[in-house]
Amino acid sequence: MEIDARGLSCPQPVIETKKAVDAKIMHMKVLVDNIAAKENVSRFAKVMKYQVSITETDYGWMLELQKQ
């Protein structure tokens, strides 16, 4: 599953991610384009016991979340 959170202001990227986490999706990609969103989503994912790997892209970052 891919969540395009680019251009969304805080805390919407986290809310969108939370919806996927609540739906028990084990693996997802979240696209973000600002640092606050990157930090907030990865912090939330870690709290929810997901492994987070971050790749820098030309628009910002792609976060890959994998349930541990």
């Binding site: 805080c10 809310i15 939370k18």
Partner: peptide, 13 residues
């Protein structure tokens, strides 16, 4: 944001 995160995600950071 500090209070919102507590309410929305139980995150105290």
């Amino acid at each position: 944001g500090g209070i919102r995160d507590v309410f929305l995600f139980k995150d105290f950071t």
